[in-house]
Simulated assay, not measured.
Amino acid sequence: MTSPRTTIAALLAAVCLLSGCGTQRQALPLSPDDTVRAAQLVLTDRCLHRQGLTPPRPDRSPPPAAERRRVVRALFGAGRTELRVRLPNGYVVRRHTDGCLAAAQQRLYGDQPRWFKVSTTVDNLKSKAPRGDRAAYAELRSLAVRNARAVLSSTFAKGTTP
């Protein structure tokens, strides 16, 4: 399993290569998962920047505790959790709909509540997930890959950084 630091570092390197940060502009083929992750990173970074916050990075020293709390609330949402899925084992998974991550998922998957439900079910139950949830997962994932490519293309076509 890849660590979050390694994943973020790889995505940042891919974004940098795609945006021409290196000496030579070249296209880096990303897997569908990395394409969605990179676009999600671009979207969440933009959202945090709009709120005057600095996105966290493993190569930066952590901000003061109060700033960290503001970033966490902005990224993951705050207040009452709006989404909830109860798994067959009784475990309940909850998610906010008001954070930058939720907004990025809405943009990529087109329906963040539906994506949360089917992805939570499929990720936890794997092949035992209901067929309808597995089909919805594949459909929404395919949409997310297309939307992620559009986000990345428009970001780098404009010559902007994420």
Results as ranks from 00 to 15, higher is better:
42 V>E: 06
63 P>I: 13
62 P>H: 14
75 L>S: 11
68 R>V: 07
27 A>P: 00
31 S>T: 13
33 D>T: 08
50 R>W: 08
49 H>W: 11
51 Q>D: 14
70 R>T: 05
65 A>Y: 07
72 V>T: 12
80 R>P: 10
37 R>G: 02
59 D>G: 10
55 P>C: 15
79 G>Q: 04
69 R>W: 12
76 F>D: 07
53 L>G: 06
30 L>D: 00
50 R>H: 11
30 L>V: 09
36 V>E: 11
34 D>A: 09
32 P>K: 00
72 V>I: 15
50 R>I: 05
64 P>A: 15
80 R>S: 13
73 R>S: 04
50 R>P: 00
43 L>Q: 15
34 D>E: 06
35 T>I: 03
51 Q>W: 02
75 L>E: 04
42 V>Y: 12
64 P>E: 06
76 F>P: 00
59 D>W: 09
72 V>Q: 14
48 L>Q: 01
65 A>N: 09
63 P>H: 09
63 P>T: 03
80 R>V: 03
27 A>M: 07
70 R>C: 01
60 R>L: 15
56 P>G: 11
57 R>G: 00
42 V>G: 07
46 R>D: 14
34 D>T: 05
38 A>H: 05
44 T>G: 13
49 H>D: 15
80 R>A: 15
39 A>P: 08
65 A>G: 15
64 P>Y: 12
33 D>P: 03
54 T>D: 11
47 C>Y: 09
79 G>L: 10
66 A>W: 01
48 L>N: 02
70 R>M: 08
60 R>Y: 02
63 P>E: 11
80 R>W: 07
78 A>W: 13
50 R>A: 14
58 P>M: 02
52 G>H: 09
49 H>P: 00
74 A>G: 06
67 E>K: 07
65 A>L: 10
42 V>A: 12
78 A>K: 03
57 R>N: 14
27 A>L: 07
59 D>A: 02
73 R>T: 08
28 L>D: 07
39 A>V: 05
59 D>V: 11
32 P>I: 02
29 P>M: 09
33 D>K: 05
30 L>R: 10
70 R>I: 05
56 P>W: 11
68 R>K: 12
64 P>R: 10
41 L>Y: 14
45 D>W: 00
72 V>G: 08
47 C>F: 10
48 L>G: 05
30 L>S: 02
65 A>V: 03
51 Q>Y: 00
57 R>T: 08
67 E>H: 04
65 A>C: 08
73 R>A: 09
63 P>V: 06
57 R>Q: 10
45 D>C: 11
43 L>W: 13
48 L>W: 03
66 A>Q: 14
62 P>I: 01
68 R>Q: 14
35 T>R: 15
31 S>I: 09
27 A>T: 04
32 P>V: 06
64 P>N: 07
53 L>S: 02
33 D>H: 15
50 R>C: 13
31 S>V: 04
71 V>E: 02
76 F>N: 06
28 L>I: 12
30 L>P: 02
32 P>L: 12
47 C>V: 01
62 P>D: 02
75 L>T: 12
47 C>G: 01
59 D>Q: 08
74 A>L: 06
37 R>Y: 09
60 R>V: 04
77 G>M: 06
39 A>T: 12
28 L>N: 01
80 R>D: 10
30 L>G: 10
64 P>C: 00
74 A>F: 15
56 P>M: 09
70 R>F: 12
72 V>D: 04
